Amino acid sequence: MAKYIPFILFTVLTNAAAQLLLKHGMMQLGELGVAGTHPILRLLQIVFSPFVFLGLCTFVISMASHLFVLSKVELSYAYPFLSLAYVVVAVAAYFLFREDLNAYRVGGIALICIGTVFIAQGGSHLADESAAVSPPPAEVSR
């Protein structure tokens, strides 16, 4: 299953990048309570602002990567890795947005990392089983 770790980490990083892009985009938009603006127009303004739109597109890439991963490994193996996106987002938000990274958050991040290591050590059997279940190629006789 180690060969799928890069794909899982790509999913994690694109998920985190999407969150950071969305946050930046919403910060740029500022106060959206413009009087007289129709809610649909406001929604379109949000969705099509550059960083929000890029964040949404990045989410699509992340989900496509996650679907590929799910086709190769067990859900109970792949899904917990997504918690690493919180680690990436928390650290990046500290540096990019000056968000608080207090002792409780650092402790939680440490527990997430430890838990992910335990899950990774457990491995996944889905891809291994599909290789084991496949019959050997049939020989053609004439």
Rank of each mutant, 00 (worst) to 15 (best):
L111H: 08
G55V: 02
R98D: 15
Q19E: 04
Q28R: 13
G25P: 05
E99I: 03
A103W: 12
A85S: 15
M26C: 00
L43Y: 12
E31P: 04
S49I: 00
V87D: 12
G108S: 07
I112N: 05
A93I: 02
S71R: 13
T116H: 07
L56H: 01
L96E: 11
E74V: 00
L44N: 03
R42E: 04
A93T: 06
S62G: 10
L56V: 11
V60I: 14
E74L: 10
F53T: 04
F59D: 01
P50Q: 08
L96Y: 13
L75S: 08
A16P: 01
H38S: 13
D100M: 08
L67T: 04
F53K: 03
L70E: 13
Y104D: 12
K72N: 12
Y86T: 13
F51V: 00
D100Q: 12
A35M: 03
M26L: 15
T37L: 12
V52P: 00
L101I: 04
A92I: 04
G33T: 10
L44V: 02
G115N: 11
A17E: 01
V91W: 07
N15E: 14
S71C: 01
V106R: 09
A90N: 09
A64C: 10
V60H: 06
A120C: 14
A110C: 12
C57I: 11
V34W: 03
V88S: 11
I112K: 13
F68D: 00
A78T: 06
R105V: 13
G55S: 05
V89K: 14
T58V: 11
A120D: 14
S49G: 01
S71E: 10
L32K: 00
G25Q: 05
L20F: 07
Y104R: 13
F59W: 02
L22D: 01
V89I: 15
G25D: 04
G122I: 06
Q45L: 07
A92T: 07
Q19P: 00
C57Y: 02
L67K: 02
V52F: 08
G107K: 10
I61F: 07
L29A: 07
L29P: 09
V88W: 08
G123F: 14
V117Q: 09
R98F: 05
N15Q: 13
A35Y: 01
L41K: 10
A103V: 13
V52M: 04
S83I: 05
G33F: 01
V47D: 02
V87P: 08
N102V: 02
Y104L: 15
L101Q: 09
Y79C: 03
V89A: 09
L82I: 14
F51I: 00
Q45F: 11
V69S: 09
V89S: 09
R105T: 12
F95C: 02
T58K: 11
V117Y: 15
A64M: 11
V106M: 15
L56F: 06
Y77I: 05
K23Y: 06
Y104G: 11
G25F: 02
Q45G: 08
A35H: 03
G55K: 10
L44F: 00
G108T: 08
H66C: 06
G107I: 06
V91R: 06
H24S: 03
L82H: 15
V52I: 10
H38V: 03
I40R: 02
A35R: 07
T37C: 06
Y79H: 06
G108N: 09
M27W: 03
G30D: 02
G115F: 03
G30S: 06
G108E: 07
